[in-house]
Simulated assay, not measured.
Amino acid sequence: MKSGSGRPTGPPVRGRAAVSATAALLVLLLVLCLLSLLIGTGSSSPARAFAYLTGDAAARADPQLRLAVVDVRLPRTLAAVVVGLCLGTAGCLLQAATRNPLAETGLLGVNSGAAFAVVVGLTFFGASSPTALLVWALAGGMAASAVVLLLAASGRAAGSPLRLVLAGSALGATFHGMTSYVLLGTQSTFDVYRYWTIGSLAGVRTSELLPLLPLVAVGLAVALGCARPLAALGLGDDSARSLGHHPGRVRLVVAGAVSLLAGCAVAVAGPIAFLGLLAPYAARAVVGASMSGQLVLSALIAADVMIVADLLARVVIRPWEAPVSVLLAFVGGPLLVWIARSSRLSTAGAAS
């Protein structure tokens, strides 16, 4: 198809835009990863860190520089990429499955389940190390999601978007109330929980991150496998059935992938708001209704934004750090208001 000016429009243009955007985002991600290794809150300058990365003998002999680059900055850079990929992909899946452009990963009870599990671990089992909190958060998020999936899979409207949303909201409210009740009587637990719940990448260690990578890989693989069924769901459930898909089953598989990805992200960084909501919206603006394009761009956009937020967290109130989730909220809040008021909101939902 050609426009009045003679230039081609439609899917081929969208496809070229998706390829160009993917390449640009990948290059940007590499640049941001390098900056993340060079910039920190400590006294090690970017020039010294760059010398270490390029193999300078004097820099490699400096144990303080090695600590800053390898033991502090490298793990949190990897964590930012992983968390961004997880939240961007999970948000895109959830918005497509529920046909709700304002859906986000906390909708399935992952955040509230992880928070309750962390409080239980702190209060009754003496869990206080970062590794222990990560395990409790992951277990709680996955358990909450499993309950939501069981509730959504029962009854005549099994797997419907409304049932998923209602089950997740109800369970989330229940966990939130239980968390508040436990925290009322334990000040020491509240002090640790308050630090975890603000959302931060500070203190992440490679040894904690590596065991989660296979789970993340499975979640991403399932997400890509769901691209075609979700594209069919975007035409409506009846059209999807005529194409050989089962909408209820597709949504339950998607919800499982969302739970896995969001659970890993929450376990690493705590609850991170807005990222899983805004990245898919930006991806749809570039690739339109292409589900595979939305998934890839959402993941890359979220990873880039996560690293930028983490970099800003290190420098805005140096020598201290600002919580990543707070910085994302400063940007995400106004953008969410703009999206909600935008006349393109309905088309964004249709594009899913």
Results as ranks from 00 to 15, higher is better:
M1T: 13
S5Y: 14
T9G: 05
T9F: 13
P12D: 04
R16S: 10
A18F: 08
A18G: 13
S20L: 14
A21W: 01
T22L: 02
L34V: 14
S36R: 02
G40M: 03
G42V: 08
A51W: 12
Y52H: 12
G55P: 05
G55V: 06
D56E: 14
L67H: 12
V70C: 03
R73C: 09
L74Q: 11
R76Q: 13
A80W: 01
V82L: 13
G84M: 01
L93G: 08
Q95I: 11
Q95R: 11
A96I: 07
P101W: 08
L108I: 11
T123R: 11
F124G: 12
S128E: 13
A132S: 15
L134Q: 15
A139T: 10
G140E: 09
G141N: 07
V147N: 09
V165E: 05
L171T: 13
H176W: 08
Y181M: 14
V192D: 10
Y195S: 07
L201F: 14
L212R: 03
L213A: 05
L220S: 07
P229N: 04
S242P: 00
H246Y: 06
P247E: 02
V250L: 05
A267V: 00
A269Q: 04
G270K: 06
A273N: 08
L275P: 01
L277P: 10
A282H: 08
A283T: 06
V286C: 01
L297P: 08
D304W: 05
D304R: 03
V316N: 06
P319E: 03
V326G: 02
L328R: 03
L328I: 08
F330G: 11
L336M: 14
I339S: 03
S342L: 08
R344C: 00
G349H: 10
A350L: 15
